[in-house]
Computed example of a mutant assay.
Amino acid sequence: MSNLLFDGRELNMEEKFGLIAEAGFQGIDAFTPEPGESAELWRTLLEQYGLALSVNVYPRSIEDMRNALERAAAYGSIRAVNVQVLTPFVTGDAAVTLLSGIADLADEYKLPVNVETHRGTITQDLIRTAEYAERIPNLRLTADLSHYVLAGEMLNVPEQAEAYFQLLLSRADCIHARLSNGEQIQVDIGTDGSHPMLARYGQWWQDGMRSWQQSHPEGGSLLFVPELGPPPYAITIDEPTNRKREISDRWEQSLTLMRYARSLWDSI
């Protein structure tokens, strides 16, 4: 919703909540509200519009992660915590130790914690991330496969990558919906979902949904987030006025992804 204009202006906080709820979304992915008036406003609006809240954190250490979970636990009513571990050059046993500690903290605080597969973080390498998942049984993930498609310039996905994707999807409690074409991180899928890569991502997403259903016979809900960022994620046209105009309507594309995800879920 950042820098997203409706009739030439950005909506205020309550207008954004109302639009999100009216469109049929069930929650908001944001950050742990700051204590004080901000936290109370968020609490009021979430309750008023019947929306869940998941939050993002960016630790570099176990201490950072504990502090983030303390804040989340103090706020309460947080559906899940999405984690980008900002140590891209930590590898091997040191990475396993850090990720194991984060997974153990999730158990300690009884909060769903999902480490995101993301460029520039501890999970930036597909092969190493698959190894971490194999070595840490309680590590849960947010699967954003667009980062691996881009980093590996996977205009066509090799069989070896597919096997790794399936392993990570089997451990995902959250899916981030963004399409990379192997050259750009966030491409325009068309409001009718006509982009040729959408069916390929749809198969991955449905595989993740199916794995989640099989591993959660007690039910619950898998998080699916149409995660379309503003520039520089969104592709822009540089105009003579030095204004960067997005080529996509992020809101309409988010609606398309929401509807598409529900159709995938319903067809399992």
Rank of each mutant, 00 (worst) to 15 (best):
W204L: 14
L198K: 06
M197G: 02
N181Y: 09
G190H: 14
E183C: 04
G202Q: 05
H195F: 03
Q213Y: 11
E218S: 10
Q213K: 15
D192G: 11
H176T: 08
V187L: 02
Q184F: 01
I185E: 00
R178V: 05
R171Y: 00
R200N: 11
W205L: 04
R210T: 15
V187I: 12
H195M: 02
W205A: 06
G182P: 09
M209F: 12
S170H: 13
C174L: 12
L179T: 08
R178P: 00
R200V: 15
I175K: 07
T191Q: 11
I175L: 15
W204T: 04
Q203C: 10
I185F: 00
I175H: 05
A172N: 06
E183Q: 09
P217G: 07
A172L: 12
W212Y: 09
Q206T: 11
L179S: 02
S194M: 04
Q206N: 08
A199I: 13
R210Y: 05
D192A: 15
H195S: 07
D188S: 09
S194G: 15
R171A: 03
S215V: 01
R178H: 01
R171V: 00
Q214V: 14
D192Y: 15
M197S: 08
H216L: 04
W204C: 10
Q213R: 15
D192M: 14
N181C: 12
G208D: 11
S215Q: 15
P196I: 09
S170L: 08
G202K: 04
R210N: 03
G190M: 05
G182D: 00
Y201F: 15
D192K: 15
H176E: 00
Q214C: 05
Q203E: 11
T191K: 13
A177W: 12
R200I: 14
L198S: 10
D192L: 13
Q206I: 06
G208A: 15
H195Q: 05
Q206Y: 10
N181D: 14
A172R: 10
G182A: 00
E183K: 13
G193I: 13
S194A: 12
G182M: 01
L198E: 03
A177E: 07
M209C: 01
S170E: 06
V187C: 03
G190W: 10
G193F: 08
C174V: 07
Q186Y: 05
C174R: 14
